[in-house]
């Protein structure tokens, strides 16, 4: 019996380790190739690790190919989206959860129904609209659709529902106005879900491809993913260089996730399980 349990445990862990290795492999290989001297990745038999690690491709990317510009663009757009989305969605989510007003129920029904509608449906008119507003080919144009979102509003609403009304009423009795109650009492209590929302928005904005591809026509304004796709067209024959570009594109989000994953995972899964 003991032996059988031991064997089962070994099998389970072998499976987990194998699956983890398989999952990590493309990422580890990406880093490995990015450090290879030019030409080494296109060889038979294929190499997994560089013979003599070099940073030359990172230098080329940041120097001649001006990748720092795109990195900065991605950072601007993602941080901007995060800032606005946390501010606006937390305000709206709190109001839906804790303030009574006429039409609240029907508003929630409309928002819930629209939750399954992807943004792509309205993408063409949105583009024409932004063109009229002079926002095409600007970071505001990239930002605008992610500044507020139904998913974000709901994430905050679900969380804010758990705040006891007595707490808010106590502040009101003490003479605090509604905005004050939101800002000084509710918002600090919502901090964990705001971190979740911030990470989710940052990740979504950084990784978004279709919308910046459409809005940004000037290649000097490109965000990293759009720039990388463009580079890939010209440099298909330079795997080492492209892998370095992929590393630079992927790394910032990965670090943000690793630093804040506890909040992110807790918030995302509670949102899916609670009513």
């Amino acid at each position: 019996m003991k032996l059988r349990r031991f064997a089962a445990s070994v099998a389970l862990h072998a499976l987990l380790v194998a699956a983890a290795a398989l999952t990590l492999f493309p990422l580890v290989w990406m880093v490995g190739v990015s450090l290879m001297p030019a030409g080494e990745a296109m060889a038979l038999p294929p190499r997994l690790l560089p013979s003599a690690p070099t940073l030359e491709h990172y230098r080329t990317l940041l120097g001649r190919l001006d990748l720092a510009r795109y990195l900065l663009a991605s950072a601007t757009v993602s941080l901007g989206a995060t800032l606005f989305s946390v501010a606006f969605n937390s305000m709206a989510g709190y109001a839906l959860a804790k303030l009574r007003f006429a039409g609240r129920e029907s508003l929630q029904r409309v928002l819930l129904a629209a939750l399954v509608v992807p943004g792509q449906i309205g993408m063409l008119p949105l583009f024409l609209l932004l063109r009229e507003m002079g926002l095409v080919n600007s970071y505001w144009g990239v930002l605008v659709p992610s500044m507020a979102g139904i998913f974000g509003i709901y994430l905050v609403r679900q969380y804010a529902l758990t705040i006891p009304d007595a707490l808010l009423d106590a502040a009101r009795v003490d003479g605090a106005g509604e905005l004050r109650v939101f800002y000084s009492i509710a918002l600090p209590l919502c901090r964990p879900i705001l971190v979740t929302l911030a990470v989710a928005t940052f990740m979504g904005a950084w990784n978004d491809f279709l919308w910046p591809l459409i809005v940004l026509t000037d290649d000097r304004l490109y965000t990293l993913p759009v720039a990388l796709a463009g580079l890939f067209g010209e440099h298909v024959q330079d795997p080492e260089l492209m892998m370095a570009g992929a590393v630079v594109t992927v790394l910032p989000v990965m670090l943000v996730f690793l630093a804040l994953q506890r909040y992110y995972i807790a918030g995302m899964t509670s949102g899916s399980l609670k009513g």
């Binding site: 950084w206 993913p225 990388l228 992929a246 590393v247 594109t249 992927v250």
Partner: peptide, 11 residues
């Protein structure tokens, strides 16, 4: 957490 464009390049 990865960007689809970047991993598409890798794959």
């Amino acid at each position: 957490t990865t960007t689809i464009v970047a991993v598409a390049v890798v794959w």
